[in-house]
Amino acid sequence: MNVEEFRDFCLSFPNTREGMPFEGFFRNSRSILVFYVNEKMFCLFDLDKFDHCTLKCDPKRIDELMGEKGIDKPFNLSPKHWISVALNGDISWEIVKDLVTQSHKLVVAGIS
Rank of each mutant, 00 (worst) to 15 (best):
82 W>S: 05
49 K>S: 11
52 H>F: 14
41 M>A: 13
108 V>E: 11
94 E>T: 09
109 A>L: 01
26 F>I: 13
14 P>Q: 04
55 L>K: 11
42 F>H: 05
12 S>F: 05
27 R>L: 15
70 G>N: 10
53 C>P: 09
96 V>K: 06
10 C>F: 04
39 E>I: 06
16 T>V: 08
38 N>K: 15
68 E>L: 15
61 R>S: 14
63 D>Y: 06
81 H>F: 11
6 F>A: 04
38 N>G: 07
53 C>N: 14
107 V>D: 01
82 W>I: 03
25 F>H: 08
86 A>C: 05
86 A>H: 08
57 C>W: 12
71 I>Y: 05
18 E>R: 04
50 F>S: 05
67 G>K: 14
92 S>V: 01
38 N>M: 14
6 F>N: 06
1 M>L: 13
97 K>E: 02
109 A>M: 01
41 M>L: 14
13 F>M: 05
26 F>T: 13
15 N>P: 05
84 S>R: 15
9 F>S: 08
80 K>I: 06
84 S>I: 04
1 M>I: 09
8 D>E: 12
46 D>P: 10
33 L>V: 11
90 D>I: 04
57 C>I: 08
99 L>V: 00
78 S>L: 09
70 G>H: 08
57 C>A: 15
71 I>H: 02
34 V>N: 08
39 E>Q: 15
35 F>L: 04
83 I>W: 09
92 S>T: 07
66 M>A: 10
18 E>G: 09
37 V>E: 07
1 M>R: 09
54 T>D: 12
39 E>F: 11
11 L>W: 03
35 F>C: 04
41 M>K: 13
37 V>T: 13
105 K>H: 03
38 N>S: 14
41 M>S: 10
100 V>M: 00
108 V>D: 03
109 A>C: 00
106 L>W: 02
44 L>W: 06
87 L>N: 02
35 F>E: 08
48 D>M: 14
6 F>G: 01
34 V>Q: 04
103 S>P: 02
62 I>S: 10
24 G>Q: 12
37 V>Y: 03
7 R>P: 07
58 D>W: 10
68 E>D: 12
36 Y>F: 15
38 N>P: 04
30 R>L: 14
36 Y>P: 08
112 S>Y: 03
92 S>C: 04
55 L>A: 07
84 S>Q: 12
32 I>E: 06
68 E>F: 13
7 R>Y: 05
94 E>I: 12
102 Q>P: 03
45 F>R: 12
24 G>P: 04
43 C>M: 06
23 E>N: 07
66 M>R: 15
28 N>D: 15
65 L>F: 07
97 K>A: 03
11 L>R: 00
3 V>M: 14
45 F>E: 08
95 I>G: 01
91 I>H: 01
75 F>V: 10
104 H>L: 00
43 C>F: 08
52 H>W: 10
28 N>H: 15
60 K>M: 09
8 D>L: 13
25 F>G: 13
18 E>A: 11
98 D>E: 08
96 V>R: 07
41 M>R: 11
111 I>M: 02
35 F>I: 00
107 V>H: 00
18 E>Q: 11
28 N>C: 12
82 W>C: 05
65 L>T: 11
14 P>T: 02
37 V>D: 07
34 V>W: 06
107 V>C: 00
1 M>S: 10
83 I>G: 00
40 K>F: 10
53 C>T: 11
93 W>Y: 08
38 N>A: 13
